Computed example of a mutant assay.
Amino acid sequence: MKAFMKRILSVVSIGAITAALLAGCGNQGKAGASAASEDAAVTMEQGSISMGEARLYAYVMKNQYEAYYGPSIWDMEVEDGVTLGDSMKNVITDQLVQTIILNSQAEAYGVSLSDEDNQAVEEYVKNFKTNIGEDVMEKEGFTEDNIRSVVQKSTLAGNVYQAMFDAEEVELTDEEKADATCIKVQHVLISTTDTTKKDDEGNNVDMTDEEKEAYLAEQKEKAEEALTRAKNGEDFQALADEYSSENAGFEFSFDKNGYDPVNMSSMVEPFYTAAWKLGEGEISDLVESQYGYHIIKCVSLNDEEATQASITSAENNKKSTSVDEKMSQQINEASYTESEAWKAYKLVSETAEDETAGETGTSESVAGESGETSAETENSSESAAESES
């Protein structure tokens, strides 16, 4: 269950809100709201996020996850007494805190919204309103100004994060540099994947087991023949032209994990493992993968272009990790206050919401000062306890 939770929360990022707004969300949420959209939801010394903005964050995230996992996920218990809705609510609160922190550092990093950013913001607002409609906005409790403010703040937060990334200085260890080294190889691939044939009407159909067995034996025989010729010094490019399948490719560069940093692609494990065992100029024996039989020739133990790209990628990954750790520390150490209305706000599954609406006679019952649905009010004390930072 914890692994599922980690997987389902992994897409939450600074860009998630703006990306979702650009695409628009077509599903209607059912959290409901009547607390004023401009009342504060989360307040810090550095700034605040309004209830309308917070509801918008929650609405977008809710629709994003329901698009993948369905509307019934929120009441699923991810640990004792804690539902996925509770956990996501805490994640959203952290996202709000992170947005406030990053926006507060814009001046220090000399960052602002460009004319292009502001133009994009207006496009986001227009697209979002078109996709969901004003009736849903009213039902969910956020306004056009809330949408504009969220996208502005999210965009500025992204710009500040990029400035933090650009300013971060890291240095790779000798071991990390060695791991980034890329070799260059060439290969001949005798495919074993074409296990179909034409029937009497010209349609592709699967071979029979006997036909498939004969085909695989024939391909292995071809591979052994090509290997003998390669070991005898015949031109490797000519052998590839003769034996390789049409889209097999010929030359590849990759690191010890089989990753090609230039083309941003990965080799299959049997291929890159065998390749890294070769010395420069050496030719492998037959290497079998799900694609067929490979014959690999090591051209260089250090492809300088690919290695430099790999080093840059490793440095960027290290910078991202460092910035993320610092950002996480700031969030963990942050002092903030949640309003009663935001504490009462809950993410619950559609079935539970419908049942609550049936019990109260309406899907948008107002309960006390919290201004949330009856389902949210009934659970406000539990939600408040779970929302403590």
Rank of each mutant, 00 (worst) to 15 (best):
Q330V: 04
I331R: 09
I331L: 03
N332P: 02
N332S: 15
N332Q: 15
E333V: 05
E333K: 10
A334L: 06
S335D: 15
Y336F: 15
Y336H: 11
T337N: 09
T337A: 09
T337E: 15
E338M: 14
S339N: 10
S339F: 04
S339W: 06
S339H: 08
S339A: 11
S339E: 09
E340A: 13
E340W: 01
A341S: 15
A341C: 02
W342A: 06
W342E: 02
W342S: 02
W342L: 12
K343F: 00
K343T: 04
K343V: 01
A344L: 02
A344E: 04
A344Y: 01
A344K: 01
A344R: 01
A344D: 04
Y345M: 12
K346P: 00
L347Y: 06
L347F: 13
L347S: 04
L347E: 02
V348S: 12
V348K: 07
V348M: 12
S349D: 13
S349Q: 02
S349V: 03
S349C: 05
S349I: 02
E350G: 01
E350F: 02
E350V: 10
E350P: 01
T351Y: 08
T351K: 14
T351C: 00
T351A: 14
T351Q: 12
A352V: 10
A352G: 14
A352H: 09
E353P: 00
E353W: 07
E353Q: 12
D354K: 14
D354L: 13
T356W: 10
T356A: 15
T356C: 14
A357I: 03
A357C: 03
A357R: 05
A357N: 06
A357L: 03
G358C: 02
E359R: 09
E359S: 06
E359Q: 10
E359H: 05
T360G: 01
T360Y: 13
T360C: 07
G361H: 07
G361M: 06
G361V: 06
T362V: 10
S363K: 10
S363M: 08
E364Y: 10
E364V: 11
S365K: 10
S365A: 15
V366F: 00
V366N: 05
V366D: 03
G368Q: 05
G368F: 08
E369S: 14
E369V: 12
E369M: 09
S370V: 11
S370T: 13
G371F: 05
G371A: 09
G371R: 04
G371L: 08
E372N: 13
E372W: 01
T373G: 09
T373Q: 05
T373E: 03
S374I: 08
S374L: 12
A375I: 06
A375R: 10
E376K: 00
E376C: 15
T377C: 04
E378A: 15
E378S: 13
S380C: 05
S380D: 06
S381I: 09
S381P: 00
S381H: 02
S381G: 00
E382H: 05
E382C: 00
E382L: 13
E382K: 14
E382Y: 11
S383W: 01
S383P: 02
S383K: 04
A384R: 11
A385W: 06
A385S: 14
A385K: 15
A385D: 14
S387W: 00
S387D: 13
S387K: 09
S387V: 01
